[in-house]
C-alpha cells in the first residue's frame, strides 16, 4: 500500500484564489499544439479511452485511485456528395460525346467504395440527352473535358475507392438528339452510392465500418446525385480583321514609322446569345501600340483598366482586350479599331 504524504495545511480558500492569480501571471497562456483536423471527422476505428482519477482523504490518509477505463471505438459515418464542376455546356443538335464534369467527394470518416450511375431521363428539362456507351469516365488527365485518355467506368470493376475526405472527378458523356431547338435545356445526372449500403440517415450496417466497427449512414443516406445541364445554342460568332497602312510619306507602304490601323468586325448570327463576348488581340511583334487608339463602335476606350469596356493588357504579350458583353443577332455589327506603328 502506497500512501501519498499529507500536504502541509494552508487556508484552503486563500491558497486557491492566490494560486490561480499566480499561475496565470506566471505562465501567461498555454500554447496550443497543432492538431490534425479532418473535414470528414475523426477517422473511423479511432479508439478513445477514458479513465477518471479520484483522490480523497480518509482517516487522515490521502489516497488516490483510478476508475475503470471505458473505451469507445469511432464508427464509420458514410457520407457522399456529388457536385457539378462544369458550367452550362453549349451544344448543337446532333453533336456526340459532349461531357459534363462532376466531383464525387467522400465526406465520411472512413475509406469507402462508391458505385456510379447516370440518369439522363430526367424531368424538368426540354430534351433528354442520350448517354454514350459507355457514358461514365474518370477524368484521368484532369482536363475537365472528355479526351481519348479518359478511362471508362465499369460497374463492379473499377468502382472508385475514396479515402475519407478524398474525391474523384467524373465525366458524364452524352449525345445530343437531332430534334432539338435553340434554347432547349437537357439534364443529365450522376449518382454515387456507397457500396456498404444506402438508405435512411442513421441506418446502421453492423460490423461493416472501416476499422472493425459499425457503419452508419450520415445525412446523405449513403447516396448523392448531381445534375448537369446542356443548352442548345445555334448561335454563330464571326470576327473579321482588316488592316490599313499609312506610311510617313503619305503612301501605304509598310515601312518603319508607318501606322497600321486594325479593324475587327464582330457579328453574331442565328438565334441565341454569345455570352460575355470578348475580343483579345495581341500587338504584333516589331510594332508598337499607339496610345489611346482603341475605339469601340465609334467611341474611344482608354488604355487603362478602369471599368470601361476595354484596355491594353500589359500582362505577357501586350494585347488589346475589349469586352462586348452578351451579343445576339439583334446586337448587329460590333467594330473594334486600334492602331500600331512599325518599329
Amino acid at each position: 500500500m502506497t500512501l501519498k504524504p499529507k500536504q502541509p495545511e494552508r487556508p484552503a480558500l486563500t491558497r486557491w484564489r492566490y494560486g490561480i492569480g499566480m499561475q496565470i501571471a506566471a505562465f501567461g497562456a498555454v500554447l496550443l499544439a497543432a492538431q490534425t483536423s479532418f473535414a470528414a471527422g475523426t477517422p473511423a476505428g479511432t479508439v478513445i479511452d477514458n479513465t477518471a482519477q479520484v483522490s480523497f482523504d480518509i482517516g487522515g490518509t490521502s489516497l488516490s485511485l483510478n476508475s475503470n477505463t471505458v473505451s469507445i471505438t469511432v464508427d464509420e459515418r458514410i457520407d457522399v456528395v456529388v457536385t457539378l464542376q462544369s458550367p452550362q455546356v453549349l451544344v448543337a443538335g446532333g453533336e456526340s460525346n459532349r461531357s459534363l464534369l462532376f466531383r464525387v467527394t467522400n465526406n465520411g470518416n472512413g475509406s469507402e467504395g462508391f458505385a456510379l450511375a447516370i440518369d439522363s431521363n430526367l424531368g424538368g428539362d426540354d430534351f433528354d440527352p442520350v448517354p454514350a456507351v459507355p457514358a461514365i469516365y474518370f477524368d484521368m488527365d484532369a482536363s475537365g473535358d472528355f479526351n481519348p485518355g479518359d478511362v471508362a467506368y465499369t460497374p463492379g470493376t473499377n468502382d472508385p475507392q475514396l479515402l475519407a475526405d478524398g474525391f474523384i472527378d467524373i465525366l458524364l458523356v452524352n449525345d445530343i438528339p437531332l430534334a432539338v431547338n435553340n434554347g432547349d435545356i437537357g439534364l443529365s445526372q450522376l449518382i454515387a452510392t456507397s457500396q456498404t449500403g444506402s438508405g435512411a440517415a442513421g441506418d446502421v450496417f453492423a460490423g461493416q465500418g472501416e476499422g472493425g466497427g459499425d457503419a452508419v449512414l450520415g445525412t446523405s443516406g449513403g447516396q448523392a446525385a448531381g445534375n448537369g445541364e446542356y443548352l442548345v445554342s445555334d448561335v454563330a460568332f464571326s470576327i473579321v480583321k482588316s488592316v490599313v497602312v499609312a506610311d510617313p510619306f503619305g503612301g501605304t507602304q509598310p515601312v518603319p514609322g508607318a501606322t497600321l490601323t486594325y479593324t475587327l468586325v464582330v457579328q453574331v448570327t442565328n438565334a441565341g446569345t454569345a455570352g460575355n463576348s470578348t475580343v483579345n488581340d495581341p500587338i504584333p511583334v516589331n510594332t508598337s501600340y499607339v496610345a489611346n487608339s482603341i475605339n469601340v463602335n465609334g467611341a474611344p476606350v482608354t488604355d487603362a483598366v478602369d471599368g470601361d469596356s476595354g484596355e491594353l493588357n500589359l500582362a505577357g504579350v501586350p494585347s488589346v482586350v475589349v469586352r462586348l458583353g452578351d451579343l445576339t443577332q439583334a446586337s448587329g455589327v460590333q467594330t473594334v479599331i486600334f492602331q500600331v506603328t512599325i518599329d
Binding site: 477514458n50 482523504d57 475503470n68
Partner: peptide, 28 residues
C-alpha cells in the same frame, strides 16, 4: 465545506488498497 487543492499529477497509488475505501465507476 472543505476544499482539496493538492496536485494529482504524476501520482501513482496502489488501487487495490484504495478500492477498499471508495468504489469508483465510469460509464460512457
Amino acid at each position: 465545506i472543505c476544499m482539496l487543492l493538492t496536485s494529482l499529477a504524476g501520482t501513482a497509488f496502489a488501487q487495490d488498497a484504495a478500492q477498499g475505501h471508495l468504489l469508483v465507476k465510469t460509464v460512457v
